[in-house]
Computed example of a mutant assay.
Amino acid sequence: MNRINKPSAFASVAIALSLALAGCGGASGPTQEPPLAGAAIGGDFTLTDSKGETVRWGDFAGKYRVVYFGYTFCPDICPTDMQRVAQGLKALKASDPDKAGKIVPIFITIDPERDTQAVVGEFAAAFSPDIVGLTGTPQQIDAAAKTFKVFYAKGEAQPGGGYLVDHSNVVYLFGPDGAPIATLPTDKDGKAVAAELARWVS
């Protein structure tokens, strides 16, 4: 296991609030203030997609954004989280295609040393063709992680070569204006993710 949940103290409180509220409300839209309203999470970045094109946060303006930081060599947590995000989006697309069409899921690597453009593209596509895989220089990734309050640190070398990366595994939902809304319950299942998306996307 290589997960370490070490977001900031503020983010920890916000995440706890969002998890506590995850079972409230219905699919008709928000009935209260989003758990992460006003949080200083997210913002501008400059990264690269699987085609080698420059991608900025502003390119997704007008869309709800599901953002997850992880890495493709992750042995357990990242694939599970991404699978549940994909399952949630698929379920929402089946029940409410209009809402699903307003969402862009984004995977950002925290291991640019190994996660090239092609690698992040293949990883993202393995879960859903809708997921945008992004990488960048170590400096660009570090800046983006700080902006999104994501912790990560390269671990010790493993027997036989390679290494793991310790990281927080929070899945954020942002609104069309780029403001944070809530976290998604990927610790549960795809149905729970779909329900949370349906709750906040309007």
Rank of each mutant, 00 (worst) to 15 (best):
G25I: 03
C74Q: 09
N2H: 14
K90T: 08
D49A: 11
L92Y: 03
V66D: 04
A14S: 06
R114D: 12
Y71L: 03
W200D: 05
A126V: 02
D115T: 03
Y163A: 03
E196A: 09
I131A: 00
A27M: 08
L89I: 00
L17H: 07
S202H: 11
A198C: 07
T116L: 04
P159D: 00
P180K: 09
D111G: 09
Y71A: 00
D130S: 13
V104E: 15
A157R: 07
R114L: 13
F45L: 02
A40V: 09
F69D: 06
G136F: 05
S202P: 15
E113F: 08
A91C: 06
C24F: 13
P105H: 12
N169Y: 05
T72E: 06
D44C: 07
L17T: 13
S50T: 12
V171D: 00
F148T: 00
V66W: 01
I4W: 13
A126P: 00
P35E: 04
P176W: 08
T116S: 15
G62E: 04
R3D: 06
T54V: 15
G62P: 09
V104K: 11
E122A: 14
G43C: 02
K191E: 15
R199C: 01
A143W: 10
G160T: 08
D98I: 12
S8F: 05
D166G: 12
L134C: 08
V66M: 14
